[in-house]
Design a binder for these strands. Structure first.
Lengths: 158, 158
DNA sequence: AGCTAGTTGACATCATCATGTCAAGATGTG
DNA sequence: CACATCTTGACATGATGATGTCAACTAGCT
């Protein structure tokens, strides 16, 4: 008993979302195995990426915001990374509790090893696809992301 | 210390993957809230979808394969759905233990309610995007998915 | 019939993530 | 300084997912 229907764009978007679910899961699993030899996971790798690209050391909450992830989960991951000597906490001149997260030499080596393993695999995965269509895909998902962020933010207003 | 680099397609794919991570998470969260009023979640909704589209009743393991998900997790979800009267188990003439999963009237109502709530929202999310570019995005992610499935299958051979 | 291999559901464990709460600390306003 | 508000890390809980193991069951082969 369907009372509503979708237009062509809605149908196409539905296909895209279902494909995205599986592609996302596969990519995370694939990434987990790719960087496992360096003591990393997809989640840890993403956190390290945020630390590397931030230029200057940040507290955990900022990293979480950058990633669009939950503060609490990023905190746990960073604590694990600290336990294993991949990052260290440095004093924050602006906040007594919110320590700054900094990569250690070992952390830098793990991150570089992950990137160097990843790069040729990324090229291989993209083979046969044109840069234009990949960018189109990226743009569509970015639009989806923006709209969903807008909707979920709007909910919070309540 | 980077020894490897990526070509233009590899760079674009990397952007796409990072965007996909966030779009995927946002979509799941958005879907969870969308169907929560009907006692569903994104995961339950996907399982119900597999049951509905299968035409004929299937055992849990088949549903899991359809979804590309783990048998054990789908089992848990189906058991929960059974607990709440959304599905029932029927005897399987071909297998004494592998019962067939069938939607109840209540389950059908919940699924229809979810779809009817979703349809107009999908159209709205797709607004301003052309059907062609959405389909391009779907095709790119489908290619990514196929290649990752291939790589992960190849690993299993070891 | 008997054996082997694959399938299936049940059970268990661990990692990840969403969410809520709390206290310490920072910031802005008066 | 006093107060309210926001930020931040610590702690806890439940949902979801990946993974492994086991016993029941099926199917194929001899």
């Amino acid at each position: 008993m369907n009372l509503t229907t979708r237009n062509a764009a809605g149908d196409a978007l539905t296909d895209l979302i279902l494909t995205m679910f599986r592609a996302n899961n596969l990519t995370v699993t694939w990434g987990d195995r790719l960087v496992a030899p360096f003591g990393l996971t997809s989640a840890r790798w993403q956190v390290l990426g945020a630390i590397v690209f931030a230029e200057r050391p940040q507290p955990v909450a900022w990293i979480a915001r950058d990633l669009g992830a939950n503060r609490q989960n990023v905190q746990r991951i960073v604590n694990d990374l600290h336990q294993e000597g991949i990052v260290v906490f440095e004093p924050n001149p602006h906040h007594r509790r919110a320590h700054l997260v900094v990569l250690t030499e070992q952390g830098r080596r793990a991150y570089d090893a992950a990137v160097n393993t990843y790069n040729p695999r990324a090229d291989a995965l993209a083979e046969g696809l044109s840069v234009e269509e990949i960018k189109t895909a990226q743009r569509v998902l970015a639009t989806l992301r923006e709209r969903l962020e807008g909707e979920l933010d709007a909910e919070k207003q309540l």
